[in-house]
Design a protein around this nucleic acid. Structure first.
Lengths: 270, 270
DNA sequence: CAAATAGTGTCTCTAAGACAATATCAC
DNA sequence: GTGATATTGTCTTAGAGACACTATTTG
């Protein structure tokens, strides 16, 4: 009779074929857009980090940052490590998006992707340091449902414009999955991953689960409101937003200064 | 300059070390418990399928069914296949629970688990066929929060009683993760996986996302209500449940028969 | 008729959306 | 003062929970 110790010493991992496992990162940030009027608050745009692929496959196409899982780390640690490597920043939080494992999704072979959304707060990003370092750029994100029911994902950076088109495949357990009609030039199945992540982000923004992570520690309520509006692509009446959020924040005794209008109290997450 | 075709023909998958990937299945069913009174409707209990391990490691311990992912299938297909192999039944739906990849979680080596909850409707299970076939058994589930804030997971099948104890580690994005204080004899990190799945199940039962999958195509509203009550471990007033569910069901013109009291209309999912 | 579930109506309370009104700063 | 945002208050409406009541079957 074999003991467990004996069994383990003789166990061969290469008995079965194994896939390569990656973590792919949907790194998201909310950027403020300058307004022409010095009095007006800045607007907000959702931004997504893409990397231009330097090698095959999908050479010169834009792709999500990510990389292979290595022994001794969890898949979440892998996602954090990859985010840090590509953005030079510790994300405020990472959110699991799903496992993408359709055969043929990667021409190199059997590679399955664990997708994570990485929430980055604008103030923590060293815009310069990471921009010239490599072909990584923050793209503006537009993600809308068309009249026909399909979803249009539009990513722009300067003159570069990636326009993907997707159909809703299934809506289960609060997660939406997609079929890609047109990848818009994005590498692999990354259009599908991005759309899934954005849908999930919108769902989680409803209950204030992630909106704090886009902002620094202290923030105004209207900045927080703009984050939720930007993510969910809706507009909210300030009075109602304040009432709903009141249970999730605590006020500090600090105020904004020199904003050209009445200063706002700064709040902290409760 | 190398073309993509050339690159791919020379690409070696074994350049990096790779993990083994499994799908582990939290197969759940709602079993009706007989009542002593012929007039009373049957009660409900949540049941979970466990397999007694025949070989090392964790020989003779109870574990979740599951198995290694094979080339040419998605991880969801793998979960469906494994469920079918262990329960002899096509699950009504599978719900992703999470990826469990902590180093050391499996003594055999680098093995990461994709956990899925499989919802099985009672009428579809061939209780006998699968029971004597192997050491797979349906356990009654009790999952409660104690006064101290910890969670107690109690699984019983006849005289077998597995009693696990867990602490809440984190609650993010509507998902709860756990630390295992006492595995109760369950193999690997399966106590942690089961607790995560049950939490997620409760969350999804709120919005009626999964409760239909536990029942046959046609059902009474009170049966549906008992499913939600069983999963969420709460009790609901029938009048209020009917009002909330009314938008998600359509009535048929059939009724229950010979139940010892007023017959109920059968409904179908909308 | 009794026991049990099926099914309806209504009251209250809370929370969300709409909107009006006031407060306060930089210029 | 003007223009902008900050902040508060209130009206209305939708939905959830509680509860009382009626309906229908089997034995």
């Amino acid at each position: 009779m074999q003991s467990e110790k004996e069994f383990l010493s003789e166990y061969r991992m290469d008995k079965y074929e194994r896939p390569s496992v990656t973590a792919d990162i949907v790194a998201l940030m909310i950027r403020s857009t300058e307004s022409e009027n010095y009095r007006q608050n800045s607007g907000n745009k959702l931004a997504l980090l893409l990397v231009k692929r330097g090698g095959h496959p999908f050479k010169d196409h834009w792709a999500l940052p990510g990389g292979f899982m290595t022994p001794g780390e969890t898949i979440e640690e892998c996602a954090l490590r990859e985010t840090k490597e590509e953005t030079n920043v510790q994300p405020a939080s990472i959110m699991p998006v799903g496992v993408f494992s359709k055969p043929g999704r990667d021409p190199r072979g059997w590679i399955i992707s664990n997708a994570y959304a990485s929430i980055i707060s604008e103030d923590s990003v060293d815009q310069k340091g990471q921009d010239d370092a490599q072909d990584a750029q923050w793209f503006d994100v537009e993600f809308d449902q068309t009249e026909s029911g399909d979803y249009s994902l539009c990513l722009t950076y300067g003159d570069v414009r990636l326009n993907a088109l997707l159909t809703e495949k299934e809506e289960k357990f609060g997660r939406t999955s997609f079929n890609v009609k047109d990848s818009g030039g994005l590498a692999f199945d990354h259009a599908e991953i991005i759309a899934s992540a954005l849908c999930m982000l919108r769902n989680n923004a409803k209950n204030f689960d992630i909106i704090f992570d886009f902002l620094p520690e202290k923030f105004t309520l209207s900045a927080l409101q703009r984050v939720q509006e930007t993510i969910m692509n809706i507009s909210i009446l300030p009075a109602n937003f304040r009432r709903k959020i009141s249970g999730y924040v605590v006020e500090t005794d600090e105020y904004t200064q020199g904003v050209g209008h009445r200063p706002a109290k700064l709040y902290r997450r409760k």
